[in-house]
Amino acid sequence: MNNILQWVSNNQEIIYIVILMIFVGIEVIGRVPSVLHTPLMSGANAIHGVVIIGAIIVMGKAEADNYTALILGFLAVILGMLNVVGGFVVTDRMLEMFRKKK
């Protein structure tokens, strides 16, 4: 019990962010017209590509002789980048079509 309480108080900054972000996420998406559901899903898909930051950190911390970490990290960076770049480009392509609206 004490452990949990301490953990919560040690990580309270993070817990605040989580709670506030949940509300921001709901608030931001709440007023989206159905027209934009697909681009929005795709845009959100690109944003969670932020996981690449973790991949970069893992990769950059790996010791030069730890090949498992190097290879897995390298793979993680590639996959994360695919998510980010692919996500943003696909979203942009979808939205490009909305631009010419009269």
């Binding site: 993070i14 962010i17 989580v18 972000m21 949940i22 509300f23 921001v24 996420g25 709901i26 931001v28 998406i29 899903m41 959100a44 898909n45 944003i47 969670h48 932020v50 996981v51 930051i53 973790g54």
Partner: peptide, 12 residues
């Protein structure tokens, strides 16, 4: 990572 991830998690 936390803001981006939770934002998408909640919105999604």
């Amino acid at each position: 990572m936390l803001t981006g991830g939770i934002l998408v998690g909640a919105a999604g």
